[in-house]
Amino acid sequence: MSEARSSGSASNPPLDPSQVDLRVTIGGVELPNPVFTASGAWGYGLEYLDLVDPARLGAVVTKTITVLPRKGNPQPRLRELPTGLLNSIGLENVGLGAFVRDKLPRLARHEVRTVVSLAGRREEEFAEMIGELSHHEGWVGVELNLSCPNVAEGGLDFGTDPRLVESITRRARAVLPDGKCLLVKLTPNNVPMATLARAAEAGGAHAISCINTVVGMEIDLDARRPVFPRGIAGYSGVGIKPIALAKVWEASHAVDIPVVGIGGIATVRDVLEFFVAGASAVQVGTALFARPDRAHRLIEELAAELAARGVRRPAELRAGD
């Protein structure tokens, strides 16, 4: 590892893109490349079949699924800022029953490497949902959403208590079928990332997904109140990239499991920066709304960019300690 970290300087002679190895392994699941779509930004992985092949992605992390369907929050749900988005969707989703009935078989048919994002209102629900998923094909892992700021129950309450992060992760891992991977998505809000990452690792997570949205607010000055009915919303996009890079750095120095970097990634340069900060893979979120094929383009550009820099594997980019 230390040898790998010290190599890959910009002065390496260029390679042919075919010499670049983009594979990444998370919890025994080998993925062909390290570019995933982030939860909430690419639906259930089936919405753009007419444009791109979702099976070319390293993985698709689905919209977060809850046990029962959710209608989500009232309008407004989205505000665009010069530096990103504020959203208050509130985990609108079809519910686990409809997901396994209507979505998973299609994901399986299209050979998508699906990581199912899960949120529970109670600690036990995460493991219960994995139990139900284990009866079905069409997924390679789960990502526990312990950090949604837009719901009243669960969400940030779970994600900011390291003991709950550890116990929920442990219960989930206990029922996770062999050959599946367990990612835990953590919040940048309120608690040191190293503390949360260690809790997830102690609970048996295979990887940390870092970061969920940053808590934000927009004010309606004329009405003298927040724009969103819940007050706070989740801030994402290019403006949170520096925060995400710092949190990935912190997490990757605190744990030995892989860190999946998320936050404001839109260009191949962003992807490389996350690798330098310690990420083993990345998720593209907000940038997909403007270009649903953005992650696919990044995969192509990534091989070319690494080759040009003479880097065989993304892990070689990681900064020394």
């Binding site: 639906g43 989500g72 309008q75 749900r77 989205l78 988005l85 959203n87 609108e92 709304f289 649903p292």
Partner: peptide, 16 residues
């Protein structure tokens, strides 16, 4: 008309 990010049913911001 509603505000929307994706136009494809993904972002769930234009729901009624």
């Amino acid at each position: 008309e509603e505000q929307m990010a994706c136009g494809a049913g993904v972002c769930r911001s234009c729901t009624i």
